[in-house]
Design a protein around this nucleic acid. Structure first.
Lengths: 250, 250
DNA sequence: GCCTAGGTCCCGTCA
DNA sequence: TGACGGGGCCTAGGC
């Protein structure tokens, strides 16, 4: 199934990747330089890295530390391999986004190809959309008598998470954040409210920022601007029927 | 240097990783499930994936496509390995952020450890900070007679990229974006300006949004709110003395 | 530790 | 195709 080489020559690497790169994921570990030109410009001097080349054209270069690759190319990248003066060269280019990456391998320590048979779908709960779902189903978690009118309402200044009417018939703009919001969330809410008042002849409208936790500074900012906030920790339903709060540790 | 196994048994995997995981990066490719509980909850059914375990505690799970890992754990994660009923198990936990990931391997196809000797520093230009540098050095790219007073000025609503005075002595708030800005950038600018006017008794103040490209909708929004925009494509200096525009393709 | 803001962000969604 | 906004975002810098 999987094929590997330890310390292959540049020619062996070239033959191997030329044969395999359309059918399998390729892994190359070795001493190389990496240059990138496109959305920015970067150069990485000689060092040992691990490179993954996926069949969708992704190229991912990892160093010994960190979750993030030091260099990469997005899906849809076209690759060219070559050997020049003992060096194994990889030219990566994506014309649509006008970017290029070049790797020069002085030495390859490990070379492998993998056929990853993987069709399952990941289930994932705990996102902002799940939180909004819950508010839509149970608007009383925000306040009694609230009626949700619209979700993802488009405005000139962006989209509003929830648009509602309170028990007194006053319109309410609700901005939902899964993570502790910053000042930007307040600016966003303020822009929506200003636009709404502009369009509706200074109508009375409330603004609510809803998040599991609202930092003190943001509360102050909201209050100063005449807005409100709610702290609300959602409970998520699983496929197996179980429920979990997002802030509990298991 | 590098050590590999093809199709090892669960016990061989266990022995190998137990011995190597403190000194080298470990790569495991095989058929597994992945469960995550922490900032959200996810489950990935059986399938073949490639897993990297780095010495800083990063764990990164890749599928056959996409730049992004399907699952991961951040630096600082503690790992426990076990074999149970023929399955090779990896328990990952990071207590400080209260999150957990569990992988169960039904089969391991490739197992390797790598010693990546890599100390070089990546050079990288073309960031927003480089763009701001250039405006600070040559304010006339925005307009003649502009004097930069402050960079990264903190305000209650966030920080302003540049604070300046124009040729007529009027204060100017400049928001710089490296990528095409959206409505959010306008909201941000508006919030700064409103705060400034609030604090300075309705003083006259100009707001400029500066980016390599400003989308039409954003221009309209800016004009409506009485703000200005500049299109400015920076030219970056390299260590070798060369210069490049960010929008040229090489 | 929290908070802030940028990123070659990536990625899905929708016009 | 581009525009828009969320993400288990990650990461670096301040405090």
């Amino acid at each position: 199934m999987d094929r590997i080489f330890l310390a292959p020559s540049s020619d062996e690497v070239f033959d191997f990747v030329s044969r395999e790169h359309r059918q399998r994921m390729i892994i190359v570990a070795g001493m190389c330089t990496v240059e990138y030109r496109g959305r920015a410009f970067s150069f990485l001097p000689l060092g040992e890295r691990l490179v993954m080349v996926k069949q969708d054209g992704c190229v991912i270069v990892h160093r010994s530390r960190g979750r993030e690759p030091v260099n990469w190319m997005p899906p849809g990248t076209r690759l060219d391999y070559a050997v020049d003066d003992q060096l194994f060269l990889v030219h990566c280019e994506k014309r649509s986004s006008r970017e290029k990456m070049v790797m020069e391998f002085v030495e390859v320590n490990l070379l492998a190809s993998l056929l990853l048979n993987d069709s399952g779908q990941q289930s994932l709960v705990g996102l902002e959309s799940d939180m909004v779902d819950q508010i839509v189903e149970q608007p009383h978690v925000l306040e009694d008598g609230l009626r949700i009118v619209r979700r993802e309402k488009q405005t000139i200044s962006g989209s509003i998470d929830l648009f509602a009417i309170d028990r007194d018939g006053v319109p309410v703009v609700v901005e939902v954040k899964r993570n502790p919001p910053g000042a930007q969330a307040v600016s966003q809410l303020e822009a929506y409210i200003l636009d709404f008042r502009e369009k509706n002849r200074r109508a009375v409208v409330r603004g609510i920022l809803c998040a599991p936790r609202v930092p003190r500074m943001v509360r102050t900012l909201l209050t100063d601007k005449g807005f409100e906030w709610r702290e609300f920790t959602p409970i998520f339903e699983f496929e197996d029927g179980g429920q979990r709060r997002l802030d509990e540790f298991i």
